[in-house]
Amino acid sequence: MADDPISSRHSQWLKGVLDLCVLGLLATGDQYGYEIARQLEGRGLGRINGGTLYPLLARLEGESLVSGKWKPSEQGPERKYYALTVEGMELLQAAAPLWREFAGRAHGVMGGGR
């Protein structure tokens, strides 16, 4: 569906806020990569493949916004769980209202499209 203009737009929007969405998910509890991808898809943000997710997690970890630790999962082998750091929480709290404001303004401008 890469040629679908709506689907392609969806991907572009997601690229801009995927890091904040991941931080938001981790604010609810530690999660591992596949679990994060499943949650994002379950919440209607579409399928996030590993090629997008893991470099993003590496960046967030490099910026000390999340921290990763291998520990046993509820079922199956050990997995690398990511946790939100204090810096990550601060960024989320600062950026989430800005996003809401931006999205609201964009919605206001596009209102004529209804």
Binding site: Y54, P77, K80
Partner: peptide, 14 residues
């Protein structure tokens, strides 16, 4: 090693 293990686990899961 960390990343390869994560990728392997992700492929196993999916």
């Amino acid at each position: 090693g960390d990343l390869v293990a994560e990728v392997a686990q992700h492929l196993e899961d999916t």
